[in-house]
Design a protein around this nucleic acid. Structure first.
Lengths: 129, 129
DNA sequence: TCTCACGCTCTCCTTTTGGTGAGTACAAAT
DNA sequence: ATTTGTACTCACCAAAAGGAGAGCGTGAGA
C-alpha cells in the first residue's frame, strides 16, 4: 500500500519519470478526451472533434496519437471508404480517468472559492495614490 | 456526495469554468510546487527553487503569483534586508494537493505500463522500406 | 569602499504550442 | 465528370512558454 503522497518515499529517478509522465498526461486536451471517451465509450474522429467543440484537427490527431502511444486509447481502423476510425479508452486510460476524478471534483467544489480568491487578489489594486 | 465523474451532471457553463480551472492548476510547475510545499510546509523563495531544481526564477515567481491569486498559497513578506519571503499552502492548496494524490499514485503505479506501451508503439516501425 | 545575499523584475532569445488552410485517396452519389 | 465525406498530413504562421542573464535596493561584513 502506497504512502499518502507517493513521491516522498520514491527514488529521485522514479520521481523524475513520474514528473515527466504527469507533464504529458496532465494536458488540457488529453484530459478532455479522456473524459469524453469515458462518458461516450467509443467515438469516431469527427464525433470526438464535435464533442470537444473547439479543438483543431491537428491537435486532435496529435493528442490521440500521444494517448495511443502511451497506451491510453485504442485506435481501430475500419478499412472502408470513406475511412472510418474509432477510438476508445484502454483499461489504463480508464484508470487515469478515475485518478483525475478527484481533480474534477475538487475543481467543481472549489470553483467559487478560487473565483473569490482572485477577486480579492485583483480587487484591492486601485488603492488610489 | 458527487457522482463518479462530475462533469456528466453539470451545467455546460460550470463545465467550461471547470475546464478552465483545470487548465490552470494542472500545470507542471504548479503540481511540483504543490507537492513540495505539502511535504516541507513553509519555504523561502530560494529554498523552493532548490527543491524543484530545474525551475527558472521567472517561472517560479510567475507560478507562485498565479497560485497566490488562486488562493492556493500564502506569501509572507518579512520586511528585513536582505528580503525574506516565505510561502506555504492554504487549506485550498492542501485540498488540491490531496486531489492530485490519485494522479501521482496512478503515475507511479503505471510508469512501467506506459513505457512498455511506448516501446510497443515505437518498436514495430521499421517494417521494411 | 566594495561585495554579497535575497527576491524579485526586465529584456532578449529560442522552443513549443496551436491554429488555418490546403492537399490526398477513393468510392458512392449526382 | 464533379461533388461529397472521412481521416488524416503538411506547410506556414502567430502566440505563448520558458530559459539566460542583467539590474535593483540595501544593510551587514570584509
Amino acid at each position: 500500500m502506497p504512502a499518502p503522497h507517493p513521491p516522498a518515499d520514491a527514488d529521485p529517478r522514479v520521481e523524475a519519470l513520474v514528473h515527466d509522465l504527469i507533464g504529458r498526461v496532465a494536458d488540457k486536451w488529453t484530459m478532455l478526451i479522456l473524459e469524453i471517451l469515458e462518458e461516450k465509450g467509443e467515438l469516431r474522429f469527427t464525433e470526438l472533434s464535435r464533442a470537444i467543440g473547439t479543438i483543431s484537427q491537428k491537435m486532435l490527431t496529435q493528442t490521440l496519437r500521444h494517448m495511443e502511444r502511451d497506451g491510453l486509447v485504442i485506435r481501430t481502423v475500419h478499412p472502408v471508404v470513406p475511412p472510418k476510425v474509432e477510438y476508445r479508452l484502454t483499461e489504463l486510460g480508464q484508470s487515469l480517468g478515475a485518478a483525475f476524478c478527484g481533480v474534477w471534483i475538487w475543481a467543481e467544489q472549489n470553483l467559487a472559492t478560487v473565483e473569490t480568491a482572485r477577486e480579492t487578489f485583483d480587487g484591492p489594486l486601485p488603492s488610489g495614490g
